[in-house]
């Protein structure tokens, strides 16, 4: 097995099916993907795309592995940055007791810049946190709750 370049893990109080349904739901994807629309084809070989709110294509790729509700793997090409080598992203949904461990593994297509590494870290962390909040509370992001001074 190839060594992943980055790994992101969160535990979500939901079923693998509920996580899979949200992850592959184009209509709900802007709620956890910074307002972008993520579209996941329904079988291996079908297109995988991420599109900005204004309709600009951001990522083009293909579904490589489609095993609902446990494993999804896609190829990832930055449309506006042809110099960035094609990456692959794998989503693993495993039941642990009565929750789901959601793992995202990132396989870079070659060396990428530090700013890209940082952007990926920040982006996937926030997407995972948003998925968790959305599934557990039904809200896209928690409202700010300032605590009164003691």
């Amino acid at each position: 097995m190839r060594k992943p370049d980055a790994v992101f893990v969160t535990f979500i109080a939901a079923t693998p099916q509920a996580v899979w349904d949200l992850l592959t739901d184009k209509a709900r994807s802007p709620q956890f993907f910074f307002g972008y629309v993520m579209s996941v084809g329904g079988a291996a070989g079908e297109p995988f795309t991420v599109t900005r709110a204004d309709g600009t294509p951001d990522v083009a790729g293909k579904v490589l592995v489609h095993e609902p509700p446990h494993r999804l793997r896609v190829s990832w090409d930055m449309v506006a940055m042809p110099d960035v080598p094609t990456a692959e992203l794998e989503f693993l949904l495993e039941p642990v007791d009565d929750v789901v461990r959601l793992t995202i593994r990132q396989f870079d297509g070659g060396p990428i810049s530090d700013s890209f590494v940082e952007a990926g870290r920040e982006g996937w962390s926030l997407i995972q946190a948003s998925l968790k909040t959305l599934l557990e509370t039904g809200r896209p992001l928690p409202p700010i709750k300032p605590r009164p001074p003691q």
């Binding site: 996937w124 962390s125 926030l126 995972q128 946190a129 700010i144």
Partner: peptide, 15 residues
Amino acid sequence: NPVPIAEIADRWIGK
């Protein structure tokens, strides 16, 4: 795994 730190940020920092 930076996700728990993002979850902390999510709790106290708004969108």
